[in-house]
Write a protein that binds this DNA or RNA. Sequence first.
RNA 1: GGCGUUAUAGCUCAGUUGGUUAGAGCGAACGACUCAUAAUCGUUAGGUCCCUGGUUCAAGUCCAGGUAACGCCA
Length: 570
Amino acid sequence: MARHLITSAIPYINGIKHLGNLVGSQLPADLYARYLRGRGHEVLFLCATDEHGTPAELAAAKAGKPVAEYCAEMHEVQARIAKGFGLSFDHFGRSSSPQNRALTQAFAARLADQGLIDEVEQQQIYSPTDGRFLPDRYVEGTCPNCGFEDARGDQCDNCTKQLDPEDLIDPRSTISGATDLEMRATKHLMLRQSAMKDKLDAWIDSKTDWPVLTTSIAKKWLHDGDGLQDRGITRDLSWGVPVKRGDADWPGMEGKVFYVWFDAPIEYIACAQEWVDAGKGQDWERWWRTDKGADDVRYTQFMGKDNVPFHTLSFPSTIMGSAQPWKLVDYIKSFNFLTYDGGQFSTSRGRGVFMDQALEVLPADTWRWWLLSHAPETSDAEFTWENFQTAVNKDLADVLGNFISRITKFCRAKFGEAVPEAGAYGPAEEALIADLTARVARYETLMDAMEVRKSAAELRAIWAAGNEYLQAQAPWTTFKTDPDKAAAQVRLALNLIPLYAVLSAPFMPATAASMVEALHLEMPHWPDDVPTALSSMAPGHVFAVPEVLFAKISDEDRDAWAERFAGRRD
RNA sequence: GGCGUUAUAGCUCAGUUGGUUAGAGCGAACGACUCAUAAUCGUUAGGUCCCUGGUUCAAGUCCAGGUAACGCCA
């Protein structure tokens, strides 16, 4: 038994995430966590909401609510949806927690003590009307290059020329529309990432088993142009972790907060503290401090490719720079993007399926299966309703669902709703057991390696093996001449169901639970060996024919959903 | 503009360190079965592995250039 710390990239508080976000981090992390728990390992699986920054402030303002209240509500919404998808976080924390505030301030103090923080003075656009400094993209005006009237402070969308906000003619705040903008001097803290470049480089080089996607992105940031740049860790906002040097004030930094990218990953650690403080566990340092028991922990992070630079460079800079024995990540599993019908998911245009809508339309396990079996591991993957329909109908309804249906109903018709006890296994049964033994071993190897799609394919083959066996042995024919032999065949086939349940549980926890429930069984332990696992339903055991596990998706439903989610979200 | 990823059967994708007839699922055709959610099982047909050039006894696999798609950055 090993100890596994697993974190999923933490979703931003603003709004409900789409299926692409889900499949890029939380869902595969959950798959892995459930699998490892099933194998008997000790797992701490953490996720949280990322709550600070300007977008949260603006969304709160739009909703007419104080930002703290808005975040608290949205956190509950996201927590509820996560639960709906069966995401088995040991704790779902908040980056705005007191624990994270204290820890972020402590890290900043420590980094400053190590000489890794510079204080720099910058000129930034200030809006007296809004009472705040404006980030570049919240300033708009006329492009000095092409005359386009709605150019953003960082770039003109019309002529694509890169701009500085002070270049704009007649600049205005996109928050209030105010035009009385002015340049003001402001002081900020920079994390000297450049000083840690060589150390990071060597560390990345040592990770030869990481996905190419992960290391290539990290290398690019390390070596591109002038190499890894220092990065501001503070902002002139009110919503965030106040800039302090540990418990002490930080002269000149009054009224400023830490930049969201700095405090968000620290929440991975703070979340473990929240987990303890919520009474769900104890001794969080055992998971995070290598001097306090975490040296045997294997830490795996899951994220989409857009988050890779933060997890390979920025957060490790914070950890390494502290020169304290914090646990560094051991493996980063990164994902490409899921595209929707040839294009991007779009929150603003309501294009694609969002997590809340997905649950309105179909059970979570249906989504879990499709998303995981099509996870964008090696390249971007595409969601189309047609592909979704055929995969769900074929894999879940026909191969798995129908297998359970056909064998339980056949048994009921010929032997009643109890496991028949006559007959003995022969060569065909031994062959099936041998085949399954090999397949289960392969499945475990793939799951250990976090090969998500291949694991799904192997699991499907395991389901299909049941149909192949029934087809070849044809107990309905055997029954006419040798009822005892048919009884043995049915007994074995019935016993496949609990095996399928436990193997499928990481992918489809709710379905797996209902499978064993119908059989009047407890969820079995992960199989040590297949022959033992296939005797969990003893002769005479009474069961009930389950309800239809998966309804098929009709062409009408498919077309209606395609229409509904094509764009323009209300 | 710079960079990254991708380009393999009609579709979605596998193809370890270059090594015999390039694989799977779906779809298609044909057949078997009739227990089952008109489900299942089997067989077969489909590929100039984006293009050009190079390295090698040998290239889908390595190198160079090009094309295209997607994305990131400034």
